[in-house]
Design a protein around this nucleic acid. Structure first.
Lengths: 229, 229
DNA sequence: CGCAAAATTGAACCCAATCAATGTTCGTGG
DNA sequence: CCACGAACATTGATTGGGTTCAATTTTGCG
């Protein structure tokens, strides 16, 4: 693994304060692998062998039932995934596939569990990470159950813009149908909802979404700190 | 606190293997309190002072947005709640109210964090608990996004029956409107969906739901181990 | 340039929310 | 113990958000 990736991973809250020896132990057991677009990394129902970390590219987490499929999360670098399954040594509840060519760091589950038992700092970081993820999911569930599709989209745009420094413009790094699934709607509906938001200061063309009137959008979206954090 | 409650709490996975001294420390700082029906125990947006444990009765966790409200979970004894907020020392994302007269054990957040730092066993138990809760939420989100209301109800009935030992009968311990909210539908729709399930071997009267033809219900519900697990 | 996949638009349909009215249950006080 | 009122539940009618199906346009890429 090159210096750059090492540093990126080392800087994660999960590893930041772990003793050097233990971090080295984790990394020496790990693989950094490159995947092309559209590769399934893990499949729901299987048992975890590795803790995964998106180092570059983006990854879609999705679940299926009876022929239907829904996106649960879209991960950007640098993020761990399937931590809960690794910790509990139980089957994945979600599948994962690359949305772009991606680099994934894979740390053997056994190594994670071992260092976890030995390094209290690491244990604490894992708890903190899990608790944060838990809270993200609570927010997602509230978003889904309490809002209409158009509201979810409006708030998603506001969040995405905020996470890119309030430039009043968001560029999608994946197809719109993925965003639609993430937002719990069909691609057709995403189109219609984007058209609707034209009335509230949002222009979209291709993969660019531009916020022309942030306050109008906010009035429509009614963002909520306890959902949109 | 009486012997019975002490034992109940001690038996929780979260505390089972904690050193006696540390458990005692937690308990000596804790309050066991009785609440009547309909009391709000915590409010979303507030900072956590205590880790809560339902010792007796049932508790509804719910979230709100823009005048709407949705039930996120219904807790039966013996269950901890708002662990994630306590761990991260961040505001609650959910509110909680009693659905029946209830006994709640409240452990000061500071004591939890202190023992957490000192007792590796406790830390590990918390990780395990959080990971389990995380997985429960993933299941809930898949349930919500991938199924129709009638399917969610059908699967809920199957799960509730299973958790009561497959007696082919479930007794609600709360109003139907709470179940409706938990299932992401209106009370009117719950009525209609219960009526619909008559066609699949489900009879309901008052707070009793009876499964007269489990295989017909299962054919309709299509339970999925990765959601209903 | 040409094809395949993605996105958009329109129409019909369906599931679910809302509104309204009626029936039922249950706790309370006479 | 019964009568009553309030909250809950059910049923019907209507509206609306959302999906599905189908056709067309646009985009991206070889």
């Amino acid at each position: 693994m090159r210096q750059t990736e090492w540093k990126l991973v080392r800087a994660l809250p999960l590893f930041r304060n772990v003793k050097a020896a233990n971090f080295k132990k984790l990394m020496s057991a790990a693989f950094l692998q490159r995947f092309p677009y559209g590769v399934t990394l893990i499949r729901e129902g299987e048992l975890p062998d590795f803790l995964h970390i998106v180092v570059d590219g983006s990854v879609e987490m999705y679940g299926t039932d009876d022929g239907h499929e829904t996106t649960i999360d879209i991960l950007q670098p640098v993020t761990t995934f399937i931590l809960a399954a690794v910790i509990r040594d139980e089957v994945y509840l979600k599948s994962a596939r690359t949305l772009t060519p991606a680099q994934i760091l894979m740390i053997p589950a056994t190594a994670v569990r071992e260092v976890f038992g030995r390094d209290a700092t690491f244990a604490r970081a894992i708890v903190s990470e899990l608790a944060m993820r838990y809270r993200d999911l609570v927010r997602a569930l509230k978003d889904e159950k309490l809002r209409t599709g158009a509201q979810r989209l409006a708030n998603w745009i506001l969040r995405a813009d905020a996470s890119h420094g309030h430039r009043h413009s968001v560029e999608l790094e994946f197809d719109k149908r993925v965003l639609a699934s993430r937002l719990g709607m069909t691609p057709e509906n995403l189109s219609r909802n984007l058209a609707l938001l034209t009335n509230y200061g949002v222009k979209s063309s291709g993969r660019d979404i531009i916020i022309e009137d942030a306050s109008a959008l906010k009035r429509f979206a009614k963002p909520n700190a306890l959902i949109d954090g």
